[in-house]
C-alpha cells in the first residue's frame, strides 16, 4: 500500500488556483524529491498535505494509509504521523522549546496509547539527538525558535522530527539558509530516520540537498501539476538544462 496518495488535487490559496489536478503517490521507505521552478506550487503542496488554513482543496482527495485526511484537523494529521519541516519556522516568544516539544511528544504518545514521558525520560531521549545535530544545550531552554539563526531553526525542526518519529516526512526547502556543516548535520538526522518504511517528500529548488539525501524518485512540479517523474538521473538533466526543457509526460 502507498503511504500517501494524492489524487487529482485542485487547491486554491485565496482566489487563485495553485494546484491543478496534482497526482502523487509516496511509497513506503522511499525518498521522493519534488523539484520545480518558483511559483510551481511546491510549498502549497506541503501546506495542502498538512491542512494549512491558507489552502482550500476544491477537488480531489489525499489518502494517508488508505484513509482520506481532507476532513482531518492539522493536529489529527500530525498525530497520525504526518510531519512537515517548515521552510520558515515561526518564532513563538514565551513558549519554552523543551516544554513545547514534550507536549508534542506526549500528545503523540497518548494518541498511540503509549505512556507519556516524564521530564527525565524526555530529557534523556532528547539529549542524544541534540548532540548529533550539534545543537547548543541552551537552545532547548529558550523560547521556541526565538532569536534562532536560520540554521538553528532548521536543526530544531529536525530535532522535532527525530523526537516525534513520524511516518511521512515532508521537508520544505530544508537546505535553505544552511551552511555545509549544518546541512551535513541536518541530513544525518534525516537519514537516520530511514527505516525502509517511512516515506520522505523532499521539496527543493536546488540539487545540493540531494547529494546528502539520496532520492529514489524525482518529480517535477510545474504550474500545479507533476509533469514528470523519473529516477535520480533526472537531477543532472535539470541542472544542465533547467525546468524549461522538461516536457509534460503524456
Amino acid at each position: 500500500m502507498k503511504t500517501l496518495e494524492i489524487e487529482n488535487v485542485h487547491a486554491n490559496i485565496g482566489e487563485k488556483e495553485i494546484l491543478r489536478g496534482l497526482n502523487l503517490a509516496l511509497e513506503p521507505g522511499k525518498v521522493h524529491a519534488i523539484m520545480g521552478p518558483n511559483g510551481a506550487g511546491k510549498s502549497t503542496l506541503s501546506k495542502t498535505i498538512v491542512g494549512h488554513y491558507d489552502v482550500e482543496v476544491t477537488e480531489g482527495d489525499i489518502r494517508y494509509k488508505g484513509k482520506s485526511i481532507l476532513d482531518m484537523e492539522p493536529e489529527e494529521r500530525a498525530l497520525e504521523g504526518i510531519f512537515l519541516s517548515f521552510q520558515h519556522p515561526v518564532e513563538i516568544p514565551g513558549v519554552n522549546n523543551a516544554y513545547f516539544l514534550r507536549m508534542a511528544v506526549n500528545a503523540k504518545r497518548k494518541h498511540e496509547g503509549k505512556e507519556e514521558l516524564n521530564a527525565a525520560e524526555f530529557l534523556r531521549e532528547m539529549k542524544k539527538y541534540l548532540e548529533m545535530l550539534g545543537m547548543k544545550a541552551d537552545m532547548i531552554s529558550r523560547s521556541l525558535n526565538e532569536g534562532f539563526s536560520g540554521g538553528e531553526k532548521k536543526r530544531n525542526e529536525i530535532l522535532q522530527m527525530l523526537m516525534l518519529q513520524p511516518d511521512v516526512i515532508i521537508l520544505d526547502e530544508i537546505d535553505s539558509g544552511l551552511d555545509i556543516d549544518a546541512l551535513r548535520a541536518v541530513s544525518e538526522g534525516i537519514n537516520m530516520m530511514k527505516d525502509g518504511k517511512r516515506s520522505f517528500l523532499v521539496i527543493t529548488h536546488y540539487s545540493r540537498i540531494l547529494d546528502y539525501i539520496k532520492p529514489d524518485y524525482i518529480h517535477v512540479l510545474k504550474e500545479g501539476r507533476i509533469i514528470k517523474t523519473a529516477g535520480s538521473e533526472l537531477v543532472a538533466q535539470l541542472e544542465e538544462e533547467g525546468y524549461e526543457s522538461i516536457e509534460e509526460e503524456a
Binding site: 488554513y53 492539522p74 500530525a78 517548515f86 515561526v90
Partner: peptide
C-alpha cells in the same frame, strides 16, 4: 497569531 497557532497544531497539539 494564526501562524503560531498552526505551527503548534502541526505538531499534534490540540487547538
Amino acid at each position: 497569531d494564526p501562524k503560531q497557532l498552526f505551527y503548534l497544531r502541526s505538531r499534534g497539539i490540540r487547538e
